[in-house]
Design a protein around this nucleic acid. Structure first.
Lengths: 235, 235
DNA sequence: CGCCGTTTTGACACTTCTCAACTTACGTGG
DNA sequence: CCACGTAAGTTGAGAAGTGTCAAAACGGCG
């Protein structure tokens, strides 16, 4: 939802079940497959031949890259509606792994050339992902550890933290919110360009200062949404 | 050239003068403008209405984002053939500024919808930019200051440092190379997520260790391309 | 209940940033 | 053509933030 819907004229949410490409014209001999996977399933590895393009119909997927010495950077977190496995050249430039149980459909990459509808949807999706990547470059290049974690948590609050964050002065519609993490501390660290210890320390610190409450490891209540927003560095 | 050509079947370089979209069908009433600008001209600011899409026909452009307190992150460096001003939603998500004298053409954003050729070219360009952004996320999130600067310099060496770097074991085709910088130290720092002082210190250090020679501020000779490649962290 | 993987905490090291001073490069005008 | 002024770049010393390594605490599951 997050990606494909952005920039679209509002069409009342996500339509029938999240498969944004499902309404396209029938393509003879198109090899469209829909698959289900458990969490922590690797869909493809960086360097694999990039013959198929994926659309995430449900669940969360992360894309990551590795340096030869083992350092990892998670480059994107994808939600329902996102397209991935996009072939910049002939091999995938990063690995894809599910963070939750997922449902994905996949196409032969050549279908991009043939289907105008597919093309159009793909373009729209890529444009949104590009913006997300720009934001993330700011996070990685210029934000402190606290700002990174606060930004990460705020992105999980609807209408806050993302591209279209409304800012602090929207009449405090809700001042607390529960977020559910689909990522481990290590995955969060690799996404935010930090170590697991730093992520843990920042979360403990936010807890100590009363901004959040850890209901469970993967279940955090934000007590002060507006206050947290101030910590992101974006306001 | 760098962006649009990647992933294309080799068609012998860049064709007629770099205008990748110039061969598209004629569009009635399309408002295509070609403009020239000096270096350090701002083409648009983050937050401006995103009504036009640009193609860089010649020169270098940087895209950057600012945080409210003035911290800047340069998110992309664009070369001939790149498309920018891509509308993820209704306003530009970053500012665009020329680093050299440039020639750009611009379109009404609605033409994306109408022209299939434009659409196709745009998709290809976005896919390449996406890969570059992924690489840059690794740089910003996981690389040391030396690795960042080495990576930056290596990207200026043809066939090295970029997505398709051949690695160190390709029979030392050239062990030295001259690169010309189009960016100031401050711009490099803001691109690499460092301070100007750190960039300066790293460059001085590389000089001291014999990897490079500073011919002029904006003209660096890499004495040991393979050695420099090792410093990037990618090998 | 006990084990194992994940997370948290602590102490310390190291890289990068900050602030300041100094040097170099470049353009203008005498 | 040289002197000067300003902007850009370099260098230094110390501070701050984050990383590293190690150990303890926690939580889920057999």
């Amino acid at each position: 939802m997050a990606y494909l819907d952005r920039g679209l004229a509002s069409n009342g949410g996500h339509g029938a079940g999240g498969a944004a490409f499902s309404a396209r014209e029938a393509v003879p001999f198109s090899h469209i497959k829909t698959q289900r996977h458990h969490e922590h399933t690797v869909l493809f590895y960086e360097g694999d031949p990039a013959d198929r393009l994926f659309e995430l119909e449900d669940g969360v997927v992360m894309l990551y890259k590795l340096l030869p010495d083992g350092r990892r950077q998670v480059v994107e977190i994808l939600n329902t509606g996102a397209v991935f496995g996009v072939p910049g050249h002939d091999v995938y430039d990063c690995s894809a792994e599910s963070l939750t149980p997922i449902r994905v459909s996949s196409f032969d990459r050549r279908e991009i050339e043939t289907s105008a509808t597919l093309q159009k949807q793909l373009t729209r999706c890529l444009m949104s992902q590009m913006e997300t990547l720009h934001d993330h470059a700011v996070l990685l290049g210029r934000k402190s550890a606290v700002e990174r974690v606060a930004t990460f948590l705020m992105r999980l609050v609807p209408n806050r933290g993302g591209v279209g964050c409304l800012g602090p002065a929207d009449g405090k519609p809700q001042d607390e919110f529960n977020v559910t993490l689909t990522m481990t501390r290590q995955e969060i660290a690799d996404y935010l360009g930090l170590t697991i210890e730093t992520v843990s320390r920042v979360i403990s610190d936010l807890k100590r200062r009363g901004f959040i409450k850890i209901e469970r490891q993967d279940h955090i209540r934000i007590n002060n949404v507006c206050g947290m927003c101030q910590l992101t560095g974006a306001h």
